[in-house]
Structure formats: C-alpha cells, structure tokens
Design a protein around this nucleic acid. Structure first.
Lengths: 336, 336
DNA sequence: TTGAAAGCGCTAACAC
DNA sequence: GTGTTAGCGCTTTCAA
C-alpha cells in the first residue's frame, strides 16, 4: 500500500502532473508516445487515482446509496441486483444502506449525499429520511427516487406497482375460487404498500358483496415468523377462514408452515396466497400462488430515474406504476 | 443542496475556519461561548462536513467494503447484518459489493482501498481479489479478512467453521440413522468450503466402512435451482440414495421440492440434510435438518479483526475456526 | 483560546 | 501537446 500519487508518476515519466492527469481522463489530448510512457510508469508502481481527491475536485462521488429496510429480504435483493447492474453501466457504485427499519439510520445514510459521499439516493422505505422540520422548498432535496413504497411526496419520482389493484386481483382470485371467508395477514401498517393492499382487499370483498370479518385480519410484519404466529392465531378463531391472503411471501411461508404443522393441508383445507414472488416461492411445498412484482424492472427504472435526476434532466413523469401479475401455483385451489 | 462549507460557518460565527474545524473535532479546545455560536451557525444553514475533504486530509475514509458473491443469499445477509452492527459502533459504514461471482467485480471492489474509498475489506469469496502477478510481499495487502471461505493465504486473518469436520458430523448423523446409500449435492467446487465438505463426507463414509457411490455425487452450486435439477438426476440413478446431503440450505430447498414433486416423501422415503441454517430453514416443509453456522459470530469476528488490522494492531491468531452445530429437525429420520 | 498557513491528491482553465 | 497554477473543503501544526 505504498502511497504513490500523480506526482511520482509525473517524475517517473518526465512530464508534468497535468499531463499525467490528462493521460488518464483525456487520453486524446496527449501524444501517444507520452501516454504510453505515463501508463507504463503508472502500471509499474501500481498507481490508482485517489478517488477522494478526484471526487473533491469534480464534485461527483460516483456513488449512489440504496436505503433499504433489510438486505436479507429476498424481495429487496432482487431489486438491488437490477440497480447495481444499471449503476455499473454508468460507472457508479452502489452503497447498500441496510437500516433494519430504523428511521435514524435512514437519515444517516441519506446524509451521505450532504457529505458528498454519494450523488443520489434510492429509497426503499415509506418515510422520508429527512428532518421534516425543514421549511426549505422541496428543491432542496438531493436526487432521490423511491421504490416500492410511495412516500406521499410528489417532489421526486417513485416506482411502484399498483398495490391496491394487485390486492384486488389477489382477492378476486380467491373469491373466484369460491372462497368467502378470507383472512389477511398484513405487513407493517406504516408501509403504504400494506395500507393499499388492505384497502384493495376490502374493496374487492365489498365489490363481491362479501363481508369482511375483522377478526380475520391480523396486523403483522413482512416476516415468516409473523406468518407463523398469525396463522396460529387465525386457526383459533371461531369462524375459521378457508383462505389466507398474506401480504408477503415470507409471511406466507411461515403461515403455511404453521398451518401444516397444526394438521391443516394447504391448499386442501386452506388456500394461501402470497405477495412478491421471491425466488424461493416456487420451491415452497406446496409451491406458492402469489402476486408477482416485476423486481428487475422496478430496480432498473429506479436507477435510470435517479441518474436522470443526477444529470439534472427534466423528469416528465413522477409516479411510475409497473404491472403486477397473479401467479397461480399450488397453494390455492377452488373450494369444492 | 446549497453547498455551505466551513468557510461560510466561520463568517457567520465571526471566527476563523480553523476554529470552526476545532469546534467540531476538538470541542474542548474552543471556548464554550464560541462553540455555541459556531454550532448555532452550522445548524442554521444545515451544515454537514464534506467527508471527501475530511477523508482526503485525514487519509481515513470511514468505509469498509464487504465483497460478497450474492447479497440475496440468506446465509450471507445474516453475516452482513452482524458486520454492519460492529462497523456502526466504530463509526464506519459498510459498502456492500455484490459481485455475482465475477472475479472482475471482486477486483474492482477491492480496488476501493487503493483508491482510498475504503479502509479495509471483508472478503466472502474464495479467491483473492488481486492480480496475483504482483511480486510484492504480502505486506502490500490492504487490511483484509476473509470470512466463510478460506483462500489459502496465510497473510491475513480468516474466519470460518471447520467445514470438513462439519461435513463429517452431518454424514455421521445420516450414518447414525442407518443410511448407507448417501448422495451429495455440492456447491461450486471452486469454493474451499465445498471442497472441504466433500472431503469430510468421504472421510466419514470411509471411517464407517461405507463405500461412496460416485454417481451419487452431483457437482452443483449453492442455489435452489441446482438442488432441484440435481435431485431429479439422483432419482434416476439405478441405486437410489436413502439420504441426500446438500451443501447449502438453498440446495436442500430445491432438492426437497423436486423429491416431493416426484412423489417421494421427505423424510419417509428419503432424508435430506442441508448446510448453513438460513432463517428460512425451519419453515421449510418438512423443516430442515441442517448444519448451523454461527453467522452472527462470524460477522462480528470478521469485523473486529478487520478493525484491528486497520488500527495496525498485531494479530496473534490468523485462522479462526468457529463452532458449528447439527440441528436435527424433520427432514431426516432413521431408516426403519 | 484563536488564527494563519501549508497542504491532502487531483482537475481544469489557461497559457505557452 | 504540454506545463503552470489556482483551488476543491478540510485538518493541523505553529505562532500569536
């Protein structure tokens, strides 16, 4: 880790530091001969530009930060992959900020744009990571786009599916199979996605003339553990549901586990539908019927929009709604 | 995003920039009164230090990079969580470098230490992300520690379990249940972990006087998809195994899925044991018997060692072996 | 207790 | 085509 700088290279190659700089950034401005010499000198000592100095000078860090509640959530990781792919193409690195749901940590990661460590933010959380007390106009915001969760702010782009419509479709799938007693296990109700999905569920039930049994709605979080305990709870209800709508595949996993463990067959006794279509979902036993979100498209679009923002392009459309799809597999079946 | 610097704050507070700097970094060196004035001025305009400039000056980036083949692998994400926790405590941020297995990207992320964007590396891959052509001594290496996979280099610390012993234990669990015809689905054999596990398997079989049917060893990767196809292949073998040892839980998931789909009950017809104990494993149907790796300890220790390296502490021990544990759940059972 | 000044390593006018 | 130079925003002696 000997610290060689542009200066050493300049000496070695017998040129000025400016020429060395050019040799790297504007190769055509330097004669082939000197360029060769410089590159050779650089290679010899293993020179790498100090990107801190470069960023300081150019006011561009080459990083974007992706604020995410939980990296280990399979759904999120699919999106991250897509984001990274786009970022790489643009010569950017992605800093993953796993917040474990903490608002404080969201703010800390978001501060990386203020401190110039990052040029923009992709936010996969439902709340804005800024002290809302700010009376500054929204144009004070750094380049930011939100994915999956709508924050309620119109000041920057968001990329989501239509959660309400997706929930309506999922519910209708169940209703179409003859289910009338349908339970729901939600995610954290602070998430816009969960709110919207619940609203969609109610809407579909109402549209079908079905009443919603409030005791069959369990408020949870997007985890398998919650799915397990919620399912146990539902099983103890007097009016046992014939189908359960889980607001995430992880919930569905825990839910099916609990159901089968208590002696209920899925889908023969109880149908289960999930949400997200994580890569594992098709391998569950039974394989999981679910609402597929276009994770790759979401990630790709988020990244593309962010770079437009960073490049100060005018965005014509703020709210991007991507299509979802009901994937019917084995965990749901028509009521005989 | 108005760009205010130390200079503006100095003007507002009527002091020099040096004093402002001190107010932030050596508060006690500044009188309470001026400090207050400075802090107030800073708060008023929402000042945040430009960490690029700070890092350039102090030659400390405050970042570590974690090079990882796949963020979406649940096993890895558990380790990451632990690393992040330790890093936060030390005032460091973790940059996650998802390489998708590409050696080129590994090298690019590793280069972040050369370019001063990061102070150290945690490597969760089996190969060194440096052009091996370097004839420089190993003390040329940046602070680096490897986790989970042993690279073969003794020049820096590594944190792993004893993969060979773990595989022996897993195999013995199966043998103890009366299984003699045992199949194996490996990970990528470039990984030291897979090599060691396979060696351990052979060792245990030999020790029990059992012969290994080479057709029952399927070379794969740590994914559910591989598990699925490998299981299908195994089912077509003339001498069908009574147990399958999967080198990752994801493989086991795909494997059990294929088995059950082809009409084989797990564990009644075939027992399956996994490796890793990812959070999902207990929710599989049947719940998965597996080799638990102490993910949190691995992550914590990796991070601790890296910071010791960064702080230039002398490390007494290079090779850290953490304990594993066989978790017996439902997917394995004694042969009647 | 505070300030002046010298850089950290690099880029980008602008001159030659 | 190449060199000079003025900083980017900050820290840190050293002197006042």
């Amino acid at each position: 880790m000997a610290k060689v700088g542009i200066k050493r290279i300049a000496e070695k190659a017998g040129v000025s530091i400016a020429t060395v700089s050019h040799a790297f950034r504007n190769p055509q401005r330097v004669s082939a001969a000197t360029r060769e010499r410089i590159l050779a000198a650089a290679a010899e000592v293993g020179y790498t530009p100090n990107s801190l100095a470069v960023s300081l000078r150019t006011a561009r860090s080459g990083n974007i930060v992706c604020i995410i509640p939980d990296v280990s959530d399979s759904f999120n990781s699919e999106i991250i992959k897509a984001i990274e792919k786009v970022a790489r193409l643009r010569g950017y690195s992605v800093l993953l900020g796993d917040t474990q749901g903490s608002a404080k940590r969201e703010r800390e990661f978001a501060a990386m744009t203020r401190s110039r460590q990052a040029d923009g933010i992709i936010l996969m959380s439902h709340r804005l990571p800024f002290s809302t007390g700010s009376d500054n106009a929204s144009d004070e915001l750094p380049p930011i786009v939100s994915g999956c969760e709508f924050t309620g702010h119109e000041g920057f782009p968001s990329v989501t599916i239509d959660d309400r419509k997706a929930a309506i479709d999922a519910t209708n799938h169940l209703i179409g199979y003859g289910h009338q007693s349908i339970a729901v296990i939600t995610g954290d109700m602070e998430n816009t996605s969960s709110k919207e999905r619940l609203a969609g569920f109610r809407e579909a039930m109402a549209a079908a003339g079905l009443s919603v049994d409030e005791r069959l709605i369990v408020f949870g979080k997007y985890t398998a553990q919650v799915g397990e305990s919620a399912a146990k709870k539902l099983l103890m209800e007097k009016s046992r549901p014939t189908a359960i709508f889980c607001f995430s595949d992880e919930i569905a996993l825990g839910c099916m586990y609990a159901l089968q463990r208590q002696g209920f067959a899925v889908p023969n006794d109880i149908s289960v539908i999930g949400f997200d279509n994580i890569p594992f979902a098709k391998y569950f036993v039974p394989s999981l019927t679910t609402v597929a979100q276009p994770t790759e498209e979401i990630g790709t679009l988020c990244a593309a929009l962010l770079f437009d923002l960073i490049d100060e392009k005018k965005l014509i459309k703020m709210r991007h709604i991507l299509p979802h799809e009901i994937l019917v597999r084995e965990s749901t079946r028509p009521l005989k």
